[in-house]
Design a protein around this nucleic acid. Structure first.
Lengths: 221, 221
DNA sequence: CGTGCAACGCCAAGTGCATTGTCATGGGCG
DNA sequence: CGCCCATGACAATGCACTTGGCGTTGCACG
């Protein structure tokens, strides 16, 4: 028949990234991906041993794309550097929430992950903390970082029906709290905001606090 | 036939929690739950409209159980209070990772969630920050909190096969980094540790830094 | 130019999942 | 006592990942 052609791994990954970006939420499946490529899902198993392996590869490719074109700058504040990096990764995964979960679980396999690690480590070396302490601070930053991004993405991932339902439950739980048993909750009820709103501001502030703490530790020594 | 009996909602929730605790990873399904109860999965739909609704209920029940027996103490350092609360919730969800994700997504519906909210809010009121600022600090703490717990749980959630595979990829990515392109990574390669290790220490330290920052903000005013 | 092998498309099946109808039943209410 | 509706049981639908087999094609190598 006609369509017979060879699929490069990159073509598959790009199609997958595209499908993940456009189609919403958990609508992604190997079947859909194969259909979008004009082939059969079983053919994908010639390139990847499992769906997880494919997802990992896509995640790294997205990460790589997010890092690409940026040179590792040697000047500038190291905190700004890490913050900018964080926001870039956050934005990249913001459009493909599924991938953030994958990255959060097994952070790191390919070139994209390596670039992220490299930049964070280089920034930390300029922070003033002794070389021996860099790994532990690195670990802490990455834990914080991947947790925030993954959880943020999982918020976007749920389809709107479930999301709305959750918001409704939240409203009921907060506004309907018994003032006797939950005085503080009832007192602040109207000002408490659900988890989903203002994520970016919270993200930046939490990260900034952590970085400032590291900087202070560096100065003391 | 014989087995016909009526299932109370609580029985179902307890069985679900039990199954989630003992069975590993994503092995949880309505079918398994029904089998454990000695019934059919369709019967569960007489009690819950969907699997999500059931998961939400179980999550809140676990939360409730974790909070139960603890009185809201009026004395003690507010930071210790929040830290202890955080660790308690962390431990409760540590055994049922699936639920942490549910909680992270739609944080809050029932009594358990309300108890957590109440305690955090009460602690914040003692922190010295003005009442008007409590909601925003609350928001920040809960975002950080749920993100850390959910992402940590998702690490435990993946079955050991995939976990090991991910660890292997991590090792390759770190140890096999080209020193020319990734000098810092190569330099620290042997001291960089994967995301999964030392989670509890990282958890406590990140939270402590955030709380200290809030306390400082409270003192300034 | 011919041959061989790796890779593709396609088909089918196996297993597991959530969810939805349909039927039967049994306990509570009049 | 007898009806009725909530609820349990069963069957079926639709989709998912994964595996295997089969016919066929394109590329590389001799």
């Amino acid at each position: 028949m006609a369509g017979r052609r060879r699929w490069s791994t990159e073509e598959i990954l790009d199609a997958a990234a595209e499908l993940l970006r456009t189609s919403d939420a958990d609508a992604f499946s190997l079947r859909k991906l194969a259909a979008a490529l004009g082939t059969d899902s079983s053919s994908l198993y010639r390139h990847f041993r499992s769906k997880t392996e494919l997802m990992r590869a896509v995640a790294d490719r997205v990460l790589f794309a997010a890092m690409d074109g940026r040179q590792v700058e040697s000047g500038g504040d190291w905190k700004q550097h890490i913050t900018a990096l964080a926001l870039r990764v956050r934005e990249a995964f913001g459009e493909q929430p599924q991938l953030a979960a994958v990255w959060g679980r097994y952070a790191s396999s390919g070139a994209g992950s390596r670039m992220v690690m490299e930049e964070v480590l280089q920034a930390l070396r300029k922070s003033g903390v002794p070389d021996a302490d860099v790994p532990v601070y690195y670990h802490r930053i990455v834990v914080l970082f991947s947790a925030l991004i993954a959880s943020e993405a999982s918020l976007v991932a749920s389809d709107s029906a479930e999301y709305e339902q959750g918001m409704e439950l939240f409203r009921v739980a907060v506004l309907g709290a018994d003032p006797e048993r939950f005085p503080a909750l009832a007192h602040f009820a109207r000002d408490i905001r659900p988890l989903g709103v203002d994520r970016r501001a919270a993200f930046e502030e939490i990260l900034a606090v952590q970085l400032a703490h590291i900087e202070a530790a560096g100065r003391v020594k």
